[in-house]
Nucleic acid binder design. Structure first.
Lengths: 166, 166
DNA sequence: TATTGTTATACTCTATAACTATA
DNA sequence: TATAGTTATAGAGTATAACAATA
């Protein structure tokens, strides 16, 4: 059986024992909603890209290359706040699919500049479309104005991160 | 040396190769900023709770118990969207610290109702204060009105998650 | 000395499967 | 059959340390 109402005992309902300053405290934390919203969004983004054999971070790296041809992997890591060690496998996947090529820099032999291939640009567009469709779904309860406002406020939150990176 | 400007070759600046529909596409995704903001917030929350030997999820579970005395662990898992298997170790930590007690339900011997101890309530208050102080820091660029608006918009994002759980 | 790209590795987080007891 | 609590375990995700080559 599943008689939830009968399970709700008097003790379980005795909210008098709950201090007013803690009542509903979790739900009042912006960070809690940030986390819940981000996880919900990420799950959908992962699902949207799964048929493509890609994940959100894979798309982010590819978009970084397409948006800024000639960036190095270290540049991308700084921009996306990921560790250099962890981009290696991601680039191997994108390279195996022929979505970008590496070019040695004549002036600095330590670095490789990354350039998207035509297929890379087309794939980036396709993946982006899938994620945008997903995003339209999770933001459907919001007006365009509210979406812009949400993005603006989120930027204010992690704007400090860039400053911390002294 | 670190002469970044000289490294910026003509090819790297040739944005003419970047299709207009993909230019700045990543930064226009709300999901990208959701992720960046959430990770930034979580890092700070982890740091704020670390001296206490607690993590954000530990605090969330304790707050759930304090806010709703008599909830079961399965209830809390549904509320916080975590798997039952993963709350076991969290509860062991909280129990070892004497922050809550388990009480068998007389009407259903499968379940244990969780009740906070006085120390549990006090600790919840303390941990909450640490996280609230962290939150005040990362939201400092926002007015109170903007903070409420951000929370409202975030709730709209993951409001669908509850509906999906049919 | 510092940076790049890379490998190896450890650690955390989360998900799944399976089990017992109970409803 | 379904749920609660639990154990064991696998898989991502992320972090650190170390290395060779180059600046």
């Amino acid at each position: 059986m599943n008689d939830k109402t009968s399970r709700t005992t008097k003790a379980a309902n005795d909210v008098s024992a709950v201090p007013a300053d803690i009542r509903e405290a979790l739900g009042e934390l912006v960070g809690y909603h940030l986390r819940r919203a981000s996880v919900y969004d990420m799950n959908g983004a992962v699902a949207a890209l799964e048929p493509e054999g890609a994940r959100p971070i894979t798309m982010s790296v590819l978009l970084s290359i397409v948006e800024h041809p000639g960036r190095t992997s270290a540049d991308i890591c700084r921009t996306l706040a990921i560790k250099r060690a962890n981009i290696v496998a991601l680039l191997q996947v994108l390279e195996a699919k022929g979505l970008f090529r590496r070019a040695d820099d004549p002036a600095d032999q330590r670095i490789q500049r990354l350039y998207p291939t035509p297929e890379g640009i087309e794939t980036a567009r396709h993946w982006l479309g899938l994620v945008q469709a997903h995003e339209a779904r999770i933001l459907q309860r919001m007006s365009q104005k509210e979406r812009r406002e949400l993005r603006r406020l989120l930027q204010l939150v992690w704007a400090d991160e860039a400053l911390d990176e002294t």
